[in-house]
Simulated assay, not measured.
Amino acid sequence: MKTERLLAITMILLDKKQISASQLAKTLEVSVRTIYRDIHSLSEAGIPVTTLPGINGGIQIMDNYKIDKNFFTSSDITSLLIALESLSQNVSPIQINQTFEKIKTLIPANFLEEIEFKSNQIAIDLTPWTSNHTLQPFLEIIKTAMDQSRSLCFDYEDNHGRKTKRIVEPYRLVLKEISWYLQAYCLEKEDFRTFKISRIQNLAFSSTFVPREFKAQPLGHEPFYGKKFTLITLKVTNKIREQLVDKFGPLHYSPYKDTEKLIVSFPFMEDDFGYNLLLSFGNQCECLEPPHVRAELKSRIENLLELYQNN
């Protein structure tokens, strides 16, 4: 972790020329004391980093300094290549090729074969099983808008089916599981909002804007805030066990009598997402308790059956 942080500090200094310790600490989410220890480590490694006191002071790196190829280990460059490869399906191939070429200039000749071998040991494929053909063009438009500080206008449909027209200032693209999200300032709501890209239609550029202060917020916590979990017990097959591990991590399983099925308990959120998740497992999963969750599942199944019987 420290090596990655030292590399990040070096790249920030090469880009910004000068920055305060407090700004670096905020950016890297560490203490100011840690930043000063890292600066000392960089100096000991031979990188010409200096600190200037005063109001207009800060941390800077010597002009015209270039990173020595030996500064990067084979593991550092392998990690960079794997990360780039994982995004290659969603980012412009031209941009990827240009970045690859730049990184290759950092590889000492005696490391080339080793790095190529290591980078082929891990493959990260972030593309969904079924592709959305509108996704790639939308990502390119949004990225261009962020680079040029141009606002975007589009039609948006929320998860309740409500359709609205939005004009937003784009600030951040986020990939969460298999879905892309846009974090932007909505001029209609006069606040920051998160938009799911797959719900956007008729995306187009609008006027330029002056970027405002944006504090990135992680996705994934909002839907669970203030909600209670219910401990449920399921009878599942080995096939479902793998899917549960993927979604919830290691769980404790016990055999169910003399069958090949298993018993497992885990915290369950009683909302549409939770019930739809259980129903998506079909006859590979049965809720045993508590009774009210089992009854709700039965009611939903009966409603679905009624729908098909009526038609």
Rank of each mutant, 00 (worst) to 15 (best):
K102V: 07
L278Y: 08
Y65P: 07
I96R: 05
S74V: 04
K69V: 00
I55R: 14
D68F: 07
L81M: 14
I55K: 14
S43G: 13
Q98M: 11
K247H: 14
K165L: 15
E270C: 04
G282Y: 01
I141C: 00
S131L: 11
R150L: 13
I59D: 06
H221Q: 11
L251T: 05
A83P: 03
G46Q: 04
I122L: 11
Y65D: 04
N120L: 06
P170N: 00
A21M: 01
S149L: 06
L279S: 10
L182K: 11
F100H: 13
M11F: 10
L288C: 02
T208H: 13
H133Q: 07
K239W: 04
L13K: 06
S20C: 00
C153Y: 10
I197Q: 12
S79P: 02
K2L: 14
I96K: 03
D63R: 06
E140S: 10
S280M: 08
S254M: 13
N97K: 15
D272S: 07
T144S: 13
I59Q: 07
F111H: 12
S179I: 11
L112N: 12
N64H: 10
Q309H: 11
S131T: 08
K298T: 06
W129M: 11
I167Q: 13
I94V: 11
R212F: 02
S254G: 12
T259F: 07
K66M: 12
V174T: 15
Y181T: 01
I47V: 04
R241E: 08
I240G: 00
R193K: 15
Y275F: 14
L182A: 13
K16C: 01
D272Q: 09
N283G: 05
P53A: 06
A83W: 01
F281S: 03
L112A: 11
I115K: 05
A8N: 00
A123C: 05
I301R: 12
S43P: 00
P48R: 01
F273C: 02
C186V: 09
R37I: 13
H133C: 08
L139M: 08
M1L: 11
S280C: 11
Y256P: 15
A216Y: 12
Y185A: 00
I122M: 05
E260T: 15
L231V: 12
S206W: 11
S92D: 13
R37C: 09
S41D: 10
Y253Q: 13
K17F: 02
F214L: 01
E116T: 05
N238G: 12
F138G: 00
L277G: 14
I178R: 08
E157P: 11
E213L: 08
L81T: 06
F268I: 01
I9A: 01
L262D: 04
C186E: 09
S22R: 12
K196L: 13
V30W: 02
E270I: 10
A21G: 04
I178G: 03
